[in-house]
Nucleic acid binder design. Structure first.
Lengths: 223, 223
DNA sequence: ACCTGAACACCGTTCAAGT
DNA sequence: ACCTGAACACCGTTCAAGT
């Protein structure tokens, strides 16, 4: 029999939860939500579909882990001299950019509210809300308003990505089909018709931040 | 050959898009998102799966139509003497109640942003934003902040419903597992730990409305 | 302990055939 | 024009068997 090193004799390409999750993220990025399949995943990892189940309980857990992996990368330390408002904007923008890059994440965030990454995001937002001087009873309301707004935008972006070809990059806060909006009957949809022009060449990031600022103003203007 | 009446000779139980959508809603209500199947649906309608495709293009369209059908019922005329704030609260609460009753709707709303019901909701919100006297350039931002917040809460509710047994009725704005929250390490999650108590016996509707009011205050407090 | 891959139960969707 | 239901291609998941 061959002598074997005592410490590192695992195969270099051995399967692991991390490798599986990383491959899942790649698959999701490349082909969208429909692209993540145990068959496609096992083919990419050069193994059988059953092998994955040794490391991951089921597809739901895999999607949650993939979402968590992407979101975890968005939580930067946070610059030292920031105001709470700036910090919240930074957290929100970090999420926005991650969702912009991995559109499928937006559709998964709300399905995993108790998952670690979302919990950490909520914690971060909450601390800044405390730093803003919001009284105790209002802190939960304020922090969840911010988070729910972010989740809403995230879901929209994922929905838009679904309707477009996977791989294409287009992010938008609301439907984004200004072409459709402009064609709506102005008598039935006067508001949307008026506003359709603003939609045509608006910046999604700015639009997103404007909503955050609106909520921040609401938080600040309590009696 | 038998004589046939000229006008009404269609079978009473003839298939129609409306009947299909209504049955889909019932199935979704009873068994959750996983319960809607072309086989289950066709069994309930006493026909073959292929028959449904004569009236509906595919499952995505069916889900969209079911969502639209539920949402359409939430758009009441609106009381005459209302302030714009009251009108927005009423629209939001109507949606909240619909989503509370049909949890799966929350997960579908963002996938169909350009669908008729969501468009009408956005239109309604937008008109109230105009009535609030928001200047033109700010109207789109303000209305989509409100809608995105609602969509975020809706998605959360749907996610919570998914984790619980289908049929059970429990709605919550954020994870709602205060039991889990209280068990989190207070050193790592000081904010969530502090706030977990407030979560235990809070009213979901009130919590939801508090977020709406926060955004309304933000809209009102522009310089 | 970890991996393999055939097999199972179930999907959405199509389509030739019927009325 | 509308319905029927078998058939197709594809899932997620399991599990006996291997190393």
């Amino acid at each position: 029999m061959a002598t074997r090193a005592r410490n590192t004799d695992r195969r270099e390409d051995a399967l692991s939860r991390d490798r599986i999750v990383a491959a899942a993220v790649e698959l999701l990025d490349a082909a969208g939500e429909g692209g993540l399949t145990f068959r496609a995943l096992s083919a990419r990892l050069r193994t059988g579909p059953g092998a994955i189940y040794w490391h991951v309980a089921n597809k739901g857990e895999l999607l949650g882990a993939a979402t968590d992996a992407v979101l975890a990368g968005t939580l930067l330390p946070g610059a030292p001299g920031q105001t709470p408002e700036q910090a919240i904007r930074e957290i929100a923008l970090g999420l926005f950019d991650a969702i912009d890059e991995h559109a499928w994440v937006g559709g998964q965030m709300s399905r995993v509210a108790s998952q670690s990454a979302t919990l950490r995001i909520f914690e971060r937002i909450g601390r800044q809300v405390q730093a803003l001087g919001v009284p105790d009873e209002g802190q939960f309301h304020a922090a969840s308003a911010v988070l729910n707004y972010i989740l809403g935008v995230a879901g929209q972006n994922a929905a838009n990505a679904r309707t477009q070809a996977p791989g294409t990059n287009r992010t938008d806060v609301l439907g984004a089909e200004s072409a459709i909006w402009e064609r709506l009957d102005p008598a039935e949809y006067p508001f949307i018709h008026t506003v359709a022009g603003q939609l045509r060449d608006h910046d999604d990031r700015e639009q997103f931040l404007a909503g955050i600022d609106l909520i921040l103003k609401g938080i600040a203007s309590r009696p």
